[in-house]
Nucleic acid binder design. Structure first.
Lengths: 154, 154
DNA sequence: GTAACTGCAAATCCTTTGCACTGGT
DNA sequence: ACCAGTGCAAAGGATTTGCAGTTAC
Protein backbone atom coordinates (compact mmCIF):
# COMPACT_ATOMS: atom_id res chain seq x y z
CA UNK A 1 0.00 0.00 0.00
CA UNK A 2 2.69 2.59 -0.93
CA UNK A 3 0.65 5.73 -0.39
CA UNK A 4 2.04 8.14 -2.96
CA UNK A 5 2.35 5.71 -5.83
CA UNK A 6 -1.13 4.54 -5.04
CA UNK A 7 -2.62 8.01 -4.91
CA UNK A 8 -1.18 8.87 -8.26
CA UNK A 9 -2.68 5.79 -9.81
CA UNK A 10 -6.05 6.46 -8.17
CA UNK A 11 -5.99 10.01 -9.48
CA UNK A 12 -5.26 8.73 -12.96
CA UNK A 13 -8.02 6.19 -12.73
CA UNK A 14 -10.43 8.82 -11.51
CA UNK A 15 -9.55 11.08 -14.42
CA UNK A 16 -10.25 8.16 -16.73
CA UNK A 17 -13.63 7.60 -15.11
CA UNK A 18 -14.46 11.29 -15.33
CA UNK A 19 -13.65 11.27 -19.02
CA UNK A 20 -15.90 8.25 -19.51
CA UNK A 21 -18.77 10.00 -17.76
CA UNK A 22 -18.39 13.13 -19.84
CA UNK A 23 -17.86 11.28 -23.09
CA UNK A 24 -21.32 9.82 -22.56
CA UNK A 25 -22.87 13.26 -22.21
CA UNK A 26 -23.44 12.80 -18.50
CA UNK A 27 -22.83 15.32 -15.74
CA UNK A 28 -20.36 14.61 -13.00
CA UNK A 29 -22.60 15.57 -10.10
CA UNK A 30 -21.75 15.62 -6.43
CA UNK A 31 -23.70 12.39 -5.96
CA UNK A 32 -21.94 10.61 -8.81
CA UNK A 33 -18.55 11.63 -7.47
CA UNK A 34 -19.51 10.30 -4.04
CA UNK A 35 -20.67 6.97 -5.41
CA UNK A 36 -17.57 6.51 -7.55
CA UNK A 37 -15.37 7.47 -4.60
CA UNK A 38 -16.69 4.53 -2.62
CA UNK A 39 -15.32 2.15 -5.20
CA UNK A 40 -11.95 3.86 -5.18
CA UNK A 41 -11.84 3.88 -1.39
CA UNK A 42 -12.78 0.25 -0.84
CA UNK A 43 -11.59 -1.45 -3.97
CA UNK A 44 -14.08 -4.14 -3.05
CA UNK A 45 -17.40 -5.55 -4.10
CA UNK A 46 -20.26 -3.33 -3.06
CA UNK A 47 -24.02 -3.74 -3.19
CA UNK A 48 -26.30 -0.78 -3.83
CA UNK A 49 -27.28 -0.91 -0.18
CA UNK A 50 -23.60 -0.84 0.88
CA UNK A 51 -23.03 2.30 -1.10
CA UNK A 52 -26.20 3.89 0.25
CA UNK A 53 -25.18 3.15 3.83
CA UNK A 54 -21.71 4.56 3.31
CA UNK A 55 -23.31 7.77 2.06
CA UNK A 56 -25.91 8.28 4.80
CA UNK A 57 -24.51 11.58 6.21
CA UNK A 58 -24.65 13.03 2.67
CA UNK A 59 -28.39 12.99 2.23
CA UNK A 60 -28.32 11.01 -0.97
CA UNK A 61 -31.42 9.17 -2.21
CA UNK A 62 -31.47 5.40 -2.56
CA UNK A 63 -33.02 5.81 -6.01
CA UNK A 64 -30.08 7.95 -7.03
CA UNK A 65 -27.69 5.20 -6.08
CA UNK A 66 -29.71 2.65 -8.05
CA UNK A 67 -29.95 4.93 -11.06
CA UNK A 68 -26.26 5.68 -11.16
CA UNK A 69 -25.03 2.19 -10.49
CA UNK A 70 -27.12 1.16 -13.46
CA UNK A 71 -25.70 3.95 -15.61
CA UNK A 72 -22.11 3.27 -14.56
CA UNK A 73 -22.58 -0.38 -15.40
CA UNK A 74 -23.95 0.42 -18.82
CA UNK A 75 -21.07 2.69 -19.76
CA UNK A 76 -18.57 0.18 -18.41
CA UNK A 77 -17.16 1.97 -15.38
CA UNK A 78 -18.25 -0.75 -13.00
CA UNK A 79 -19.19 -4.37 -13.44
CA UNK A 80 -21.92 -6.47 -11.88
CA UNK A 81 -21.33 -9.80 -10.22
CA UNK A 82 -24.46 -11.60 -9.09
CA UNK A 83 -24.35 -14.35 -6.53
CA UNK A 84 -27.49 -16.00 -5.16
CA UNK A 85 -29.62 -13.19 -6.45
CA UNK A 86 -27.50 -10.51 -4.78
CA UNK A 87 -25.82 -8.00 -7.07
CA UNK A 88 -22.37 -6.77 -6.19
CA UNK A 89 -20.47 -4.16 -8.17
CA UNK A 90 -16.79 -3.49 -8.62
CA UNK A 91 -14.75 -0.93 -10.53
CA UNK A 92 -13.91 -2.22 -13.96
CA UNK A 93 -10.66 -0.32 -13.98
CA UNK A 94 -9.33 -2.82 -11.47
CA UNK A 95 -10.04 -5.54 -13.92
CA UNK A 96 -7.68 -3.89 -16.35
CA UNK A 97 -5.68 -6.99 -15.61
CA UNK A 98 -6.44 -9.38 -18.41
CA UNK A 99 -8.94 -11.17 -16.18
CA UNK A 100 -9.49 -11.83 -12.55
CA UNK A 101 -11.39 -14.48 -10.67
CA UNK A 102 -13.63 -14.26 -7.66
CA UNK A 103 -13.80 -16.67 -4.81
CA UNK A 104 -16.70 -16.79 -2.40
CA UNK A 105 -16.45 -18.57 0.92
CA UNK A 106 -19.33 -20.88 1.68
CA UNK A 107 -18.94 -20.12 5.38
CA UNK A 108 -18.25 -16.39 5.81
CA UNK A 109 -19.71 -15.35 2.40
CA UNK A 110 -16.74 -13.06 1.82
CA UNK A 111 -15.80 -12.48 -1.79
CA UNK A 112 -12.11 -12.20 -2.55
CA UNK A 113 -10.22 -11.59 -5.76
CA UNK A 114 -7.75 -14.04 -7.18
CA UNK A 115 -5.24 -12.19 -9.28
CA UNK A 116 -2.57 -14.55 -10.36
CA UNK A 117 -0.96 -13.58 -13.56
CA UNK A 118 -0.04 -17.13 -14.41
CA UNK A 119 -3.56 -18.42 -13.83
CA UNK A 120 -5.15 -15.58 -15.74
CA UNK A 121 -2.96 -16.19 -18.74
CA UNK A 122 -3.89 -19.84 -18.76
CA UNK A 123 -7.56 -18.99 -18.65
CA UNK A 124 -7.13 -16.71 -21.59
CA UNK A 125 -5.40 -19.43 -23.52
CA UNK A 126 -8.32 -21.75 -22.79
CA UNK A 127 -10.80 -19.14 -23.97
CA UNK A 128 -9.01 -18.91 -27.27
CA UNK A 129 -9.48 -22.65 -27.67
CA UNK A 130 -13.16 -22.39 -26.87
CA UNK A 131 -13.64 -19.57 -29.35
CA UNK A 132 -12.07 -21.57 -32.10
CA UNK A 133 -13.84 -24.84 -31.39
CA UNK A 134 -17.28 -23.33 -30.90
CA UNK A 135 -17.05 -20.61 -33.48
CA UNK A 136 -17.97 -17.78 -31.16
CA UNK A 137 -16.47 -14.58 -29.81
CA UNK A 138 -15.76 -14.17 -26.11
CA UNK A 139 -15.82 -10.60 -24.82
CA UNK A 140 -15.86 -11.16 -21.12
CA UNK A 141 -15.47 -13.92 -18.57
CA UNK A 142 -16.92 -14.24 -15.11
CA UNK A 143 -15.46 -16.90 -12.92
CA UNK A 144 -16.70 -17.58 -9.44
CA UNK A 145 -15.01 -20.19 -7.35
CA UNK A 146 -16.89 -21.42 -4.32
CA UNK A 147 -15.41 -23.10 -1.29
CA UNK A 148 -13.74 -22.57 2.05
CA UNK A 149 -11.36 -19.65 2.51
CA UNK A 150 -8.07 -19.65 4.37
CA UNK A 151 -9.65 -18.25 7.53
CA UNK A 152 -12.59 -20.62 7.59
CA UNK A 153 -10.62 -23.79 6.91
CA UNK A 154 -9.46 -23.35 10.49
CA UNK B 1 -30.56 -37.89 -29.81
CA UNK B 2 -30.78 -41.71 -30.00
CA UNK B 3 -34.22 -42.10 -28.51
CA UNK B 4 -33.97 -45.42 -26.69
CA UNK B 5 -30.53 -44.94 -25.23
CA UNK B 6 -31.61 -41.50 -24.19
CA UNK B 7 -34.80 -42.65 -22.57
CA UNK B 8 -32.99 -45.25 -20.56
CA UNK B 9 -30.54 -42.70 -19.27
CA UNK B 10 -33.35 -40.26 -18.45
CA UNK B 11 -35.18 -42.99 -16.56
CA UNK B 12 -32.04 -43.74 -14.60
CA UNK B 13 -31.49 -40.12 -13.82
CA UNK B 14 -35.08 -39.73 -12.72
CA UNK B 15 -34.77 -42.69 -10.41
CA UNK B 16 -31.71 -41.04 -8.92
CA UNK B 17 -33.61 -37.82 -8.39
CA UNK B 18 -36.52 -39.69 -6.82
CA UNK B 19 -34.16 -41.37 -4.39
CA UNK B 20 -32.65 -38.00 -3.49
CA UNK B 21 -36.09 -36.56 -2.77
CA UNK B 22 -37.07 -39.48 -0.59
CA UNK B 23 -33.74 -39.68 1.19
CA UNK B 24 -34.44 -36.16 2.37
CA UNK B 25 -37.77 -37.16 3.84
CA UNK B 26 -39.69 -35.31 1.15
CA UNK B 27 -42.75 -36.53 -0.70
CA UNK B 28 -42.69 -36.95 -4.44
CA UNK B 29 -45.91 -35.09 -5.15
CA UNK B 30 -47.58 -34.56 -8.48
CA UNK B 31 -46.31 -30.97 -8.54
CA UNK B 32 -42.73 -31.96 -7.79
CA UNK B 33 -42.77 -34.56 -10.52
CA UNK B 34 -44.06 -31.98 -12.98
CA UNK B 35 -41.39 -29.47 -12.06
CA UNK B 36 -38.59 -32.00 -12.31
CA UNK B 37 -39.97 -33.25 -15.61
CA UNK B 38 -39.45 -29.83 -17.14
CA UNK B 39 -35.75 -30.06 -16.51
CA UNK B 40 -35.57 -33.52 -18.04
CA UNK B 41 -37.59 -32.45 -21.03
CA UNK B 42 -35.66 -29.29 -21.84
CA UNK B 43 -32.22 -30.03 -20.46
CA UNK B 44 -31.82 -26.29 -20.45
CA UNK B 45 -31.63 -23.36 -18.10
CA UNK B 46 -35.02 -22.43 -16.74
CA UNK B 47 -36.24 -19.57 -14.59
CA UNK B 48 -39.01 -20.05 -12.03
CA UNK B 49 -41.30 -18.17 -14.36
CA UNK B 50 -40.37 -20.46 -17.28
CA UNK B 51 -41.34 -23.49 -15.25
CA UNK B 52 -44.56 -21.87 -14.09
CA UNK B 53 -45.55 -20.99 -17.66
CA UNK B 54 -44.83 -24.51 -18.88
CA UNK B 55 -47.15 -25.81 -16.18
CA UNK B 56 -50.11 -23.45 -16.68
CA UNK B 57 -52.65 -26.13 -17.74
CA UNK B 58 -51.86 -28.06 -14.54
CA UNK B 59 -53.19 -25.52 -12.07
CA UNK B 60 -49.97 -25.30 -10.14
CA UNK B 61 -49.27 -22.33 -7.86
CA UNK B 62 -46.36 -20.00 -8.52
CA UNK B 63 -45.46 -20.23 -4.82
CA UNK B 64 -45.20 -23.99 -5.17
CA UNK B 65 -42.70 -23.61 -7.97
CA UNK B 66 -40.65 -21.16 -5.92
CA UNK B 67 -40.76 -23.40 -2.86
CA UNK B 68 -39.69 -26.49 -4.71
CA UNK B 69 -37.00 -24.90 -6.82
CA UNK B 70 -35.53 -23.70 -3.53
CA UNK B 71 -35.78 -27.15 -1.98
CA UNK B 72 -34.33 -28.91 -5.04
CA UNK B 73 -31.44 -26.49 -5.02
CA UNK B 74 -30.74 -27.10 -1.35
CA UNK B 75 -30.66 -30.87 -1.73
CA UNK B 76 -28.50 -30.60 -4.82
CA UNK B 77 -30.86 -31.78 -7.55
CA UNK B 78 -30.63 -28.54 -9.45
CA UNK B 79 -28.18 -25.69 -9.47
CA UNK B 80 -28.67 -21.95 -9.66
CA UNK B 81 -26.90 -19.71 -12.15
CA UNK B 82 -27.52 -16.01 -11.74
CA UNK B 83 -26.90 -13.55 -14.52
CA UNK B 84 -27.80 -9.88 -14.27
CA UNK B 85 -29.96 -10.55 -11.28
CA UNK B 86 -31.95 -13.25 -13.08
CA UNK B 87 -31.80 -16.75 -11.59
CA UNK B 88 -31.69 -19.70 -13.95
CA UNK B 89 -31.73 -23.32 -12.82
CA UNK B 90 -30.39 -26.47 -14.41
CA UNK B 91 -30.34 -30.14 -13.44
CA UNK B 92 -27.19 -30.92 -11.56
CA UNK B 93 -27.17 -34.45 -12.94
CA UNK B 94 -26.12 -33.02 -16.26
CA UNK B 95 -23.14 -31.46 -14.61
CA UNK B 96 -21.96 -34.90 -13.56
CA UNK B 97 -19.16 -34.01 -15.92
CA UNK B 98 -16.32 -32.70 -13.83
CA UNK B 99 -17.28 -29.15 -14.69
CA UNK B 100 -19.02 -27.34 -17.45
CA UNK B 101 -19.02 -23.77 -18.61
CA UNK B 102 -21.82 -21.49 -19.68
CA UNK B 103 -21.77 -19.02 -22.47
CA UNK B 104 -24.29 -16.23 -22.77
CA UNK B 105 -24.76 -14.31 -25.98
CA UNK B 106 -24.81 -10.57 -25.59
CA UNK B 107 -27.22 -10.32 -28.50
CA UNK B 108 -29.82 -13.10 -28.20
CA UNK B 109 -29.29 -13.70 -24.45
CA UNK B 110 -29.28 -17.43 -25.02
CA UNK B 111 -27.28 -19.48 -22.58
CA UNK B 112 -25.46 -22.48 -23.97
CA UNK B 113 -23.28 -25.11 -22.35
CA UNK B 114 -19.70 -25.65 -23.28
CA UNK B 115 -18.73 -29.21 -22.55
CA UNK B 116 -15.29 -29.86 -23.79
CA UNK B 117 -13.51 -32.53 -21.90
CA UNK B 118 -10.11 -31.08 -22.72
CA UNK B 119 -11.04 -27.60 -21.58
CA UNK B 120 -12.71 -28.85 -18.42
CA UNK B 121 -9.65 -30.82 -17.44
CA UNK B 122 -7.47 -27.78 -17.91
CA UNK B 123 -9.73 -25.71 -15.73
CA UNK B 124 -9.53 -28.32 -13.02
CA UNK B 125 -5.77 -28.27 -13.20
CA UNK B 126 -5.82 -24.51 -12.80
CA UNK B 127 -8.08 -24.79 -9.78
CA UNK B 128 -5.63 -27.08 -8.10
CA UNK B 129 -2.96 -24.41 -8.57
CA UNK B 130 -5.19 -21.77 -7.08
CA UNK B 131 -6.01 -23.94 -4.08
CA UNK B 132 -2.37 -24.48 -3.36
CA UNK B 133 -1.25 -20.89 -3.83
CA UNK B 134 -4.07 -19.33 -1.87
CA UNK B 135 -4.46 -21.97 0.77
CA UNK B 136 -8.16 -22.53 0.24
CA UNK B 137 -10.54 -25.31 -0.77
CA UNK B 138 -12.56 -25.08 -3.95
CA UNK B 139 -15.83 -27.01 -3.94
CA UNK B 140 -17.51 -25.61 -6.98
CA UNK B 141 -16.79 -23.42 -9.98
CA UNK B 142 -19.12 -21.25 -11.98
CA UNK B 143 -17.82 -19.96 -15.24
CA UNK B 144 -19.82 -17.67 -17.45
CA UNK B 145 -18.40 -16.58 -20.76
CA UNK B 146 -20.02 -13.62 -22.42
CA UNK B 147 -19.88 -12.71 -26.05
CA UNK B 148 -21.37 -13.31 -29.46
CA UNK B 149 -22.67 -16.75 -30.37
CA UNK B 150 -22.26 -18.58 -33.65
CA UNK B 151 -25.70 -17.50 -34.85
CA UNK B 152 -25.35 -13.84 -33.92
CA UNK B 153 -21.87 -13.37 -35.33
CA UNK B 154 -23.61 -13.42 -38.69
C1' DG C 1 -30.94 29.47 -18.91
C1' DT C 2 -32.09 24.95 -19.49
C1' DA C 3 -31.77 20.19 -19.75
C1' DA C 4 -29.99 16.73 -16.88
C1' DC C 5 -30.14 15.19 -12.32
C1' DT C 6 -31.99 14.65 -7.69
C1' DG C 7 -34.95 13.31 -3.58
C1' DC C 8 -39.13 11.65 -2.28
C1' DA C 9 -43.12 8.76 -2.48
C1' DA C 10 -45.74 5.76 -5.04
C1' DA C 11 -45.72 2.00 -8.15
C1' DT C 12 -43.98 -2.31 -9.76
C1' DC C 13 -41.80 -6.60 -9.73
C1' DC C 14 -40.04 -10.73 -7.68
C1' DT C 15 -40.12 -13.78 -3.84
C1' DT C 16 -41.70 -15.43 0.66
C1' DT C 17 -45.11 -16.43 4.15
C1' DG C 18 -49.59 -17.53 6.78
C1' DC C 19 -53.32 -20.24 6.64
C1' DA C 20 -57.03 -23.34 5.66
C1' DC C 21 -57.44 -27.20 2.73
C1' DT C 22 -55.60 -31.47 0.23
C1' DG C 23 -53.09 -35.58 -0.73
C1' DG C 24 -49.03 -38.99 -0.12
C1' DT C 25 -47.41 -42.53 2.53
C1' DA D 1 -55.05 -40.81 9.89
C1' DC D 2 -51.47 -37.77 10.05
C1' DC D 3 -48.44 -34.38 8.71
C1' DA D 4 -46.09 -32.61 4.63
C1' DG D 5 -47.34 -30.11 0.79
C1' DT D 6 -50.49 -27.10 -1.82
C1' DG D 7 -53.04 -22.89 -3.64
C1' DC D 8 -54.30 -18.52 -2.75
C1' DA D 9 -53.88 -13.99 -1.15
C1' DA D 10 -51.37 -10.99 1.54
C1' DA D 11 -46.86 -9.45 3.07
C1' DG D 12 -42.17 -8.26 2.26
C1' DG D 13 -38.11 -6.68 -0.09
C1' DA D 14 -35.69 -4.91 -3.91
C1' DT D 15 -35.79 -1.92 -7.80
C1' DT D 16 -38.00 1.47 -10.88
C1' DT D 17 -40.68 5.44 -12.04
C1' DG D 18 -43.25 10.07 -11.96
C1' DC D 19 -42.79 14.45 -10.63
C1' DA D 20 -41.62 18.91 -8.69
C1' DG D 21 -37.65 21.14 -7.32
C1' DT D 22 -32.38 21.70 -7.95
C1' DT D 23 -27.88 22.02 -10.11
C1' DA D 24 -24.07 21.44 -13.47
C1' DC D 25 -22.62 23.14 -17.58
Amino acid sequence: MGSIANNISVKEDFRLVKRLVEKNGLRLTKQRKLILEQFFITKRHLTVEDIYQRLKGFNIGLATVYRNVKIFTSIGIIKEISVDGVSYYELKIYSKKPLHLHFQCINCNDIIDIDEREVALNYIRLNKDIEKTNNLEIYDVNIMLIGLCKKCRG
